[in-house]
Design a protein around this nucleic acid. Structure first.
Lengths: 203, 203
DNA sequence: CCTACCGATCGGTAGG
DNA sequence: CCTACCGATCGGTAGG
């Protein structure tokens, strides 16, 4: 039932090694050794080391995008949820993906610079579009006086790098479970925008 | 007057290359090429590539520590400044060092994992001690009801990774100068802790 | 700071 | 998935 293809195994151990030593710091033979096969045998399954990195980064980017899509209101919705709720959903989705697979998330966040020029450009575009979702919610909230008057570009970068930082330090433990962590990060993110403090100020 | 030793030049170009391509992704010959000398000639000035990384990381760690020392009240002070002021000073100092030399800061933040075992352990200790300063101010503020009741460990990690994220994205421009950026990041950080909203609640 | 050179390792291919 | 092998590049040394 737990079907794990060889290709998936390769990407799993590659994610772990790229996470720990970086893409440049990991050799094809390091990956093969973790699978108990010869370095050259890896090429029966993958076209290149770069190809493995791309699969990990592209797949993880898609997970983030799909999760954000799922919590983004349809453009034709009667009434868009208020900005605080929309931001909460985005933060929770993001933290969920990071904590669900820290190694792949970490590779996506830190190693996309090692992609070839074209792929790197594509991921840069997709990352910017993803960050734009955060900027828009923040700008909406500022416009509605639901958030403090922050710079949406700086605030979105602040929030997203805080969330992405998880991939570098978080290890699940009994005291700070993924659920507790998500709650804490939602609280900090809403507070960072002073959410709910400004609705009454001007009209 | 502007005395730049060869050693400093080497560390400057190495910081730039390590920032862009990582330590493993930068060869000794890459560094030499940027200085218009032969790869082997570099060894007239440095003992090893690892030695260059250590100088950058150790020096930058010291800058962060000295800046935090400078804004930390003496233990024998009559009255410690309130937590919001202390946190403001810590955030401003940290952002200042990052924006003052993004490349070195970035190498310190991201490449310390490439250090040899002993040095890596030392930097891990020093980073933890530095982060502890943030945890303490946050815990003090929570204890005095100056901040919202956040988990000091999670909140300190959240704040510091947000600040460190600057090294990856920030480029000074006319709209967002280093000073404006520091103001925005202080505001977001204080708000993240809901600073000044809780003083009146219980006693 | 240079030329000349070292052994080790790199990503990848050929041919089973 | 293996053995055998490729040219290129790696960090670093010797000796000027």
């Amino acid at each position: 039932m737990v079907e794990t293809t060889r290709r998936q195994e390769i990407e799993d151990v590659a994610s772990s090694l790229f996470h720990e030593h970086g893409y440049s710091g990991t050799s094809v033979r390091d990956i093969a050794r973790a699978l108990d096969i010869q370095g050259a045998s890896l090429y029966a399954h993958v076209a290149s080391k770069q190809d493995v990195l791309w699969s990990i980064v592209d797949g993880t980017a898609s997970r983030f995008e799909a999760a954000a899509d799922a919590v983004t209101p349809a453009p034709d919705a009667e009434s868009a949820p208020d900005p605080a709720d929309r931001l909460t959903a985005l933060v929770r989705a993001h933290v969920g993906i990071v904590t669900d697979d820290i190694e792949r998330a970490s590779v996506f966040i830190h190693e996309w610079r090692s992609l070839s020029t074209d792929r790197r450009a594509e991921i840069a575009r997709r990352r910017d579009a993803y960050e734009q979702r955060f900027r828009e919610v923040i700008a909406d909230g500022v416009g509605e006086y639901a958030f403090a008057p922050v710079d949406p570009v700086a605030a979105a970068a602040y929030l997203l790098t805080a969330l992405n930082g998880l991939a570098a330090w978080y290890r699940p433990d009994r005291r700070l479970t993924p659920a507790a962590l998500a709650d804490a990060y939602v609280q900090l993110s809403l507070q960072a925008l002073d959410a709910g403090r400004h609705a009454e100020v001007p009209v």
